[in-house]
């Protein structure tokens, strides 16, 4: 534990001292206000459209963090041997990997907080400016709630990144596999949802549905589509469902990290 916390802090500083981090921070403060422009083009449900745009931008920024900051950090550590200086402190491999993971999550928090704050101010402004067109009231707590829930699957995806990096040969391999996983996580759940409908199911062979379900079970559930839709329309989410949603992602992240540590321990760091 005594070496873990300093490495968590170092990881945070390593990420935060990059120029791209500071640029992203600035962009995330600005983006919510820019979303007012496309939102103003709509008719009545402006609140819902604005929240949709904000959730989409949140997904995009989390992906940018994952692919352009988190993945290069851990892949470079292992591929180029930066991890040697930490492991020979000495530090156990499991501790090292966990500290890097926690450090990345800590580094994500200021970006997330900045975005949530800016988005909340934007929503407050929009609600007062377009009061007649807001159908779902009190969008600020709805958005903050939804944003926190959208963050969950990305914690799991970060753990998957570590699992991939623990076995991959370098950054290109890590990125390819991570992108493939993300693509499946992104597109499978809504497709499976569509397959439940009678007219779609009638035209799709059963084995395809079974195969897709099996693959889907192995991946993090990135589909917060129901959550974002519900909250954008001001609908309540069941507490049990939300608790289950959060717990499953945390458990998935832990499981992925455990597997990552097992793979990393068995690996030769040449």
């Amino acid at each position: 534990m005594s070496r873990t916390l300093p490495l968590v802090t170092l990881t945070f500083r390593e990420i935060a001292s990059q120029r791209v981090y500071r640029i992203l921070l600035g962009v995330l403060l600005l983006v919510p206000w820019l979303m007012l422009i496309p939102a103003s083009l709509f008719m009545f449900d402006i609140g819902k459209v604005l929240i949709d745009l904000l959730f989409t931008a949140l997904h995009a920024s989390l992906l940018i963090f994952l692919f352009f900051m988190a993945a290069p950090l851990i892949a470079r550590d292992i591929e180029q041997g930066s991890c040697h200086i930490f492991l020979t402190l000495p530090m156990r491999r499991g501790r090292y990997l966990s500290a890097r993971f926690v450090g990345l999550i800590v580094a994500l928090m200021p970006l997330f907080a900045a975005y949530a704050l800016s988005a909340s101010l934007t929503l407050t402004f929009a609600e007062s400016h377009w009061a007649a067109f807001y159908v779902a009231p009190h969008s600020v707590p709805l958005f903050d709630y939804g944003a926190a829930l959208i963050l969950m699957p990305y914690l799991a995806l970060t753990a998957v990144l570590f699992l991939i990096a623990a076995a991959a040969t370098g950054l290109p391999e890590t990125m390819v596999f991570l992108f493939s996983v993300w693509l499946l996580c992104w597109s499978l759940p809504p497709v499976l949802g569509a397959l439940l409908q009678a007219e779609v199911a009638a035209k799709t062979p059963t084995w395809i549905g079974t195969l897709l379900q099996t693959v889907n079970q192995l991946l993090p559930d990135l589909s917060s589509s129901r959550i974002s839709l519900y909250l954008a329309h001001g609908k309540k989410l069941g507490i049990e469902a939300v608790a289950g949603y959060c717990l499953q992602h945390l458990a998935y992240a832990l499981l992925a990290m455990m597997l990552a540590v097992i793979l990393f321990k068995r690996r030769d760091l040449t």
Partner: peptide
């Protein structure tokens, strides 16, 4: 206590040497 100098040391590029060494001091008391 031991220390290792790798053949081609790769150090975190965005950090300074001082912050890196201070990290070692904190980690190893």
């Amino acid at each position: 206590p031991y220390a290792y100098l790798p053949e081609q040391p790769q150090l975190p590029p965005s950090l300074s040497a001082l912050s890196l060494l201070r990290f070692k001091c904190r980690a190893n008391h």
